[in-house]
Amino acid sequence: MNATAYLDSPLGLLSLTGSDAGLSAVSFHHTEGHSPTGFGAVPVCLREGYRQLQAYFGRELRAFNLTYAPDFGTDFQRQVWQALTGIAYGRTASYLDVAKLLNNPKSVRAVGAANGQNPLAIVWPCHRVVGADGSLTGYAGGMHRKKWLLEFEQPVRQGGLFG
């Protein structure tokens, strides 16, 4: 049986869904009526995912290490989602890069479609996939969130030494 918890993030409320089998979804929550779940009230099966997302937003975690159990997905979609985990924090890849990684460079559009169906936002970093020219392209969570995530993951750049 799936359990749900809600995490307050800089991007708004996130809903986490999963079971003892693993985390099945992380999504941006767009409806009213829910408030963040205090850690003590988070179902046991979601605590590690909740903790790791908190650490990510606290700049203490760059790579997630969780057990996943998505509720849907074709073999191809799952291959794309697995490939997303290889795009390192602070980096981006194009849809063509992902298609080539899957040894199928003609599958660029299918990679884009699979990317858009990613059930584990942020955790499987589909926000790191950009157009071949480096431009920001669609994001199920909204372009403002994609831009925020990419900027958040960039290393802090020091300005002038004295100001």
Rank of each mutant, 00 (worst) to 15 (best):
Q77N: 10
T31A: 13
N104E: 11
S19R: 05
G18F: 03
G12V: 04
L136A: 11
L7F: 07
Q82H: 12
R62E: 13
E60W: 06
V80G: 07
W148H: 12
A110I: 12
K147F: 11
T37E: 05
R157Y: 04
A55C: 10
T37V: 08
F28P: 07
A113C: 10
S35L: 13
S9I: 08
I87M: 01
L23E: 05
L23W: 01
T4I: 13
G18S: 04
S15F: 07
V44Y: 13
G18T: 05
D97W: 00
H127I: 02
L149K: 07
K106M: 13
Q52V: 01
G73D: 01
V98D: 02
S15E: 11
W148C: 01
L120S: 02
Q77C: 09
G90Q: 00
H29T: 02
E60N: 12
L161A: 13
P125D: 08
L136V: 10
I87D: 00
T85G: 08
H29G: 01
V44L: 11
A41F: 04
A114R: 02
W124F: 08
A5V: 04
R128H: 01
L149A: 01
A3Q: 15
S24Y: 09
L61H: 07
F57S: 02
G142D: 00
L84E: 03
N118S: 10
L11P: 07
S27A: 15
A5K: 09
L14I: 01
V123E: 06
G131P: 02
A132I: 11
G163V: 08
L14N: 00
A88I: 02
A63S: 14
A83W: 07
L53S: 06
P155V: 06
R109L: 15
A63R: 14
L13M: 04
T74Q: 09
G18V: 04
